[in-house]
């Protein structure tokens, strides 16, 4: 049984079919890659899955619940969390607070309790802080917990985005170019972290990436998009050797 299933998911902006009849089927616990040349519509797929854009036609179903027509907030509560291609951290908040924000819907106390830090506040906040610190340790950010998020170096900002997404307790994690701008060492670390997250948090991960080393290193299955349509899909090694995929990426021999 697939965790995420899209059926003919399409979106049209005016006359442009940005994504045309995409069929994804991602099993629980899978590390799935969505690749394709620039402008293929990969991020648009993420935006449809998280409710930023409403699909023109087709459906997306997560664990038996249809995602169509739901707001980003509702979809997050259903268990989809994402990162962004152009990092979107809460720059003026501390690293710790960025992660603690993610626990917002899983810790419970009233506004009145936060006014005076009484009642359920103390226990809930202590737990949220502990859990946030655990996550920060996983992403090797615990040393920078009091830094403002905007003061972190680029690679760490990307990792913090993943930590923050994990804090919302997702079933499905969408990573939009997690390795963009990282050097080979940072990318290798990131691959370990992503694998660690999948294994230790029972996470299902769908990621967009251009770094083929990362894709071939950790993704079990791939879907290749080109101009909004599905070019190929299947096990990673098979897809990456597909002549049509190679052509789409590096062009045709003359």
């Amino acid at each position: 049984m697939a965790l995420l299933e899209t059926k003919d998911l399409s979106i049209q902006f005016g006359g442009l079919k940005a994504v045309d009849r995409l069929n994804l089927s991602i099993k629980k616990g899978q590390l799935y890659g969505l690749i394709g040349p620039n402008g293929a519509g990969k991020t648009t797929v993420f935006n449809m899955l998280t409710g930023v854009y409403a699909p023109t036609s087709g459906t997306a179903v997560l664990d038996g619940v249809t995602l169509n027509g739901k707001s980003p907030v509702e979809i997050n509560k259903l268990g989809v969390a994402r990162t962004f291609q152009n990092i979107r951290l809460f720059g003026k908040m501390s690293v710790l607070d960025n992660v603690r924000l993610g626990f917002g819907n899983s810790i419970h106390y009233s506004l009145f309790e936060s006014f005076f830090h009484i009642g359920r506040y103390r226990k809930a906040e202590r737990e949220a802080t502990e859990k946030a610190m655990e996550l920060l340790k996983v992403f090797n950010l615990d040393g920078e917990k009091d830094y403002l998020a905007s003061n972190l170096p680029y690679g760490k900002q990307r990792r913090l985005e993943i930590a923050r997404a994990m804090a919302t307790g997702p079933k499905l994690l969408l990573l939009d170019e997690p390795a963009a701008g990282m050097n080979p060492n940072e990318t290798a670390d990131l691959m370990d972290t992503i694998r660690f997250v999948r294994d230790n948090f029972d996470m299902t991960i769908l990621l967009i990436e251009h770094d083929m080393k990362l894709v071939s290193g950790i993704c079990e299955e791939l879907t290749v998009l080109n101009f909004g349509t599905e070019l190929a899909k299947g096990p990673t090694a098979e897809v990456l050797n597909n002549p049509r995929v190679i052509t789409a990426y590096i062009g045709e021999d003359d």
């Binding site: 998280t50 930023v52 707001s71 980003p72 907030v73 997050n76 509560k77 969390a81 994402r82 962004f84 979107r88 951290l89 809460f90 720059g91 003026k92 908040m93 607070d97 603690r100 924000l101 993610g102 917002g104 819907n105 923050r164 997404a165 804090a167 919302t168």
Partner: peptide
Amino acid sequence: RAVMAARDNRIAAEAMG
């Protein structure tokens, strides 16, 4: 924190619930 998150980045705040 929710208020400040919405200030710093509205889209990300919505995506984080």
